[in-house]
Amino acid sequence: MLSAASAAVVRATLPVVRDHAAEITAEFYPSMFAAHPELLNLFNQGNQASGKQQLALAAAVVAYAQHLLDGTPFGPIAERIAHKHVSLGVRPEQYPIVGRHLIGAVAAVLGDAVTPEVAAAWDEVYWLFAVSLIAAEARLFQTAGVTPDTLWRPWRVAKRAEEAADTVSFTLLPDDGGPVPAFEPGQYVSVAVDLPDGQRQPRQYSLSQAPGRDELRITVRRVRGVDGAPDGAVSSFLHDHVRADDTVLVGPPAGEVALQPGDRPVVLISAGIGITPMVSMLGHLSATQPRRTVVAVHAEISADRHAHREEYVRLAGPQQMTWYENGDGDGRSGRVDVDAIPLPADAIVHLCGPITFMRDVRAALLRRGVSADDVHYEVFGPGMLER
């Protein structure tokens, strides 16, 4: 709980910090990386270059401060951040580094407005945030049976399969003789590669087949740069350089948005490469709950980009709907019409796809009477803080 004195200061200064949060985080990251270049390996440098990561941190700090002041729910966001941190191997001893440079960035941007009292109050906000994350991450590390030192394991590519245009699957086996970890359908793993420039970069990819096998599978869509942005560094590396019998570093399964247990009907709505966790969920449901009601909906630009198409159709069963934006003949034409989706009573809905797609579909589901608590979604990257 925030102390009374700090709460008064944070309440008075929160509007100013909120208005300048993006500037603060834009100052913070270069300062921290200049002093600690080893931390570059933890962060998606594509998101750094685009500014998305800066906005994500700004949103997190402001949202947590608001939570401390008035109890605005923050638990789901904190849980999502903790899972992401564990998937990357964030260490407790790195939090003081972040805190020092973050408060320094606040002072650099706001100047004389940052009195010792203001600095102390926001330092208290940061450390309450940090301590809660450190505790949550310790529990997740313990559950996974790993530490930051043992997080990354070498996995051998047993099979590479071209799934669709710009989309490749990699079936992975432990190269260290260790066990294949258990996971929940819908979770992801981090994959780290050493790029040609010598920099190690991690990315998260959903596990794209059901648990309970002696292997893991990820499916990677090549990220094509648009509007002058570069192509995705890691997805391009995996597509261009990783073949059968090569090895990659893989972290433990993570992610708090997994298939909900029980026997309530399930509606799975995905777009693009967001189909990957849905294939995992469908495979699990087919094997363990074949009589559970499932409605599967997928949207894609065109049929040739529909990853895992045959597998998806086979697993989804009769209640499935596909939309192709370009009007391919074997799917509905245009964008997903949520009003056309059959929604069983008391259904649980899982979404995965671009942020704008999920935002629009979620809003339409709420208009149709689906409870917000029954709509579950995972977002990779800094957009995960948008609600």
Rank of each mutant, 00 (worst) to 15 (best):
L2G: 10
A5F: 06
A7I: 09
V10A: 06
A12Q: 14
P15Y: 12
V17H: 00
D19E: 15
A26Q: 07
Y29V: 11
P37M: 09
E38H: 07
L40H: 13
Q45R: 15
L55E: 02
A56L: 03
Y64D: 00
Y64V: 02
D70V: 00
P73F: 10
P76L: 10
A78M: 13
E79F: 00
R80C: 10
A82G: 02
A82L: 02
S87I: 10
Y95D: 02
V98K: 06
V98F: 14
G99T: 07
L102Y: 07
A105I: 11
V106L: 15
A107L: 09
L110I: 03
G111M: 06
G111F: 08
A113W: 05
A113L: 14
V114W: 13
E117Y: 06
E117F: 03
A119E: 15
A121N: 09
D123Q: 14
W127R: 07
F129T: 01
I134F: 11
A135P: 03
A136Q: 15
E137N: 06
L140H: 14
F141L: 13
T143D: 14
V146K: 08
P148D: 14
T150R: 01
L151A: 08
L151S: 08
R153G: 03
A165Q: 08
A165S: 07
T167L: 04
S169C: 08
D176P: 06
V180L: 05
A182D: 15
F183M: 10
F183E: 09
P185R: 00
G186N: 12
Y188E: 02
S190M: 06
V193A: 03
D194K: 01
Q199I: 03
L207W: 07
A210P: 01
P211S: 01
G212M: 09
T219R: 05
V223A: 08
G232D: 03
F237P: 04
D240E: 15
D240N: 12
D246A: 07
V250P: 05
G251E: 03
P252M: 06
P252T: 04
P253W: 10
A258K: 06
V266N: 02
V266M: 10
I273V: 15
T276G: 11
T276K: 05
A287Y: 03
T293Y: 04
A296P: 09
R305G: 11
A307G: 07
R309S: 06
E311Q: 11
Y312I: 01
R314G: 13
L315I: 10
A316Y: 03
Q320D: 13
Y324C: 09
D339E: 14
D339Q: 09
D339V: 00
P342D: 15
H350C: 12
C352K: 00
P354M: 01
I355M: 13
F357C: 08
M358V: 06
A363V: 11
A363F: 12
L365M: 14
R367C: 13
A372S: 15
G381P: 00
G383E: 02
E386G: 01
